[in-house]
Computed example of a mutant assay.
Amino acid sequence: MSEVKISAEVRSEFGKGAARAVRRENKVPGVLYGHGTEPVHVTLPGHELLLALRTPNVLLALDVDGKSELAIPKAVQRDAIKGFLVHVDLLLVKRGEKVTVEIPVQAEGELAAGGNLLEHVLNTLSVEAEATHIPEAVTVSVEGLEAGASVLAKDIALPKGSTLVTEADAVVLQVLAAQAEEPAAEGAEEPAAEGAEA
């Protein structure tokens, strides 16, 4: 997994006004917590953090006012319209420590012929892994699967050192039969009636 070095500054001013001032400087307010310590309010460089967060469960090697800390992102808030980072919660971790994280599920391969659809029931799996060896994703082969087939969480091979936290019998992927084309006129007026306000 990726380890990214980032410098963080401890901040002492809080509230919306202070957070806006931080963001005007192209920085991101955040909170560093974990291991029974008091939460530390920090400021992180916006562009560097944005690049780092492109990797799921990235391990951040933080330099916090001269002190080295390892952390993983636990909650990331983005502006709903412009997409810039608003705030980040970081969890302190130690090498060798186990943490529970969500890792993306990626499908590869071609379904059996017939125009069937692959539905991602779960986009991520919850796994326990060593904090410094969190998998970036798991890949599942759907090669040749036919309508009605499904892939359960327990069927997915996890990287070495990871254990499944998601319920073993949870459906992760399923193959849906191709829908037959229906005449457009049938039931065309029903959806409009459903959304009408009383």
Rank of each mutant, 00 (worst) to 15 (best):
A107E: 05
R54S: 14
K27Y: 04
G36Y: 10
E181G: 02
V22E: 07
L60K: 01
S68M: 13
E48N: 14
V172G: 00
D79F: 00
A19H: 07
V93F: 03
V172H: 04
A8V: 04
L152Y: 05
V86A: 10
A52H: 06
G114H: 04
F84A: 08
L85A: 02
A21S: 15
H87K: 13
D65H: 02
E69F: 12
L51M: 13
L53Y: 06
L125G: 02
A193I: 10
V172A: 04
F14T: 14
K98S: 13
R95F: 06
A180C: 04
T43K: 07
A149Q: 05
P56R: 06
F84T: 10
A137L: 14
K74E: 06
G17W: 09
R54H: 15
E181K: 13
G148C: 08
K74F: 00
A61Y: 07
E146F: 10
V175N: 04
Q106L: 15
S150K: 12
A149K: 09
H35G: 08
T43G: 02
I134W: 02
L32N: 03
L152G: 01
L32E: 00
L53A: 08
E181W: 01
K94N: 14
Y33N: 08
V4M: 07
L122R: 13
A52K: 05
R95G: 11
A177H: 09
A193E: 13
G36F: 10
T139I: 05
D155C: 06
E197N: 11
E13Q: 15
G109K: 11
A192I: 02
G66F: 09
T43P: 02
P183N: 15
V28M: 08
L59F: 08
G46P: 06
D79T: 06
E186M: 13
V101W: 02
L122F: 01
